[in-house]
């Protein structure tokens, strides 16, 4: 009976829901960040209707973002895309940099320089190296730190609501 239920019970409930793991929670954080950042004026002129999150490097399952794709933030549509190299980051408003890039992170930050892009990571030491928001784990819970200087350089304004929840890196 229980074998029957196990296999057919699921059939009744189409298997479209996902497991609630670390990356889903982190993805939810990243989506929420889009709501609390003000990009420089002019960024969204000319009919741009999306906030684009680009995912660079590996170590983070991109499909964790699937659910948030198409949701809105500040009236714009949140869109994710994977990019293979940094030559076409012009269209990115947010850039997630995976743990695989930890040895190249300084170069990457230099490439982006002062572009108005919210850089995000979830690797130890990224914030110190100039990534604006870095996620980390504490007591099995997701936390984040913000590098204020990097944020200023990018010309972004982060809402105080977000700042008060973050660990601040000067």
């Amino acid at each position: 009976m229980f074998i029957f239920l196990f296999f057919f019970g699921g059939q009744f409930c189409r298997a479209d829901s996902q497991k609630f793991g670390e990356y889903e929670v982190k993805a939810a954080f990243i989506y929420n960040f889009a709501k609390f950042v003000t990009w420089p004026e002019g960024r969204f002129k000319g009919g741009k209707s999306t906030i684009d999150l680009c995912v660079y490097g590996s170590g983070f399952p991109v499909n964790a973002f699937d659910y948030f794709n198409g949701k809105t933030a500040q009236g714009y549509i949140f869109k994710t895309k994977r990019i293979k190299n940094l030559s076409n980051i012009d269209g990115c408003d947010m850039l997630y940099i995976g743990p695989s890039e930890r040895y190249q992170i300084t170069q990457i930050i230099n490439t982006i320089k002062n572009m108005p892009i919210l850089t995000i990571g979830d690797t130890e030491g990224f914030a110190e190296k100039g990534v604006i928001i870095n996620l980390y784990m504490e007591d099995d819970k997701v936390r984040f730190e913000i590098n204020i200087n990097a944020c200023k350089k990018a010309g972004l304004v982060i809402s105080s609501q977000l700042l008060k929840l973050a660990r601040i890196i000067q």
């Binding site: 009744f12 409930c13 189409r14 479209d16 829901s17 996902q18 609630f20 793991g21 670390e22 889903e24 929670v25 939810a28 954080f29 989506y31 929420n32 609390f36 659910y67 948030f68 949701k71 784990m137 007591d139 099995d140 819970k141 997701v142 936390r143 609501q161 977000l162 929840l165």
Partner: peptide, 30 residues
């Protein structure tokens, strides 16, 4: 549960609705 309550949401959409304060209280398996 599946046919009777079609409008019931799945866990991920619940995750999407949570604000940052709530998200900070979610435990991850380690």
């Amino acid at each position: 549960f599946c046919y009777g309550l079609e409008k019931e949401e799945d866990p991920l959409s619940k995750l999407a609705r949570l604000n940052l304060e709530d998200l900070m209280n979610i435990k991850v398996e380690t």
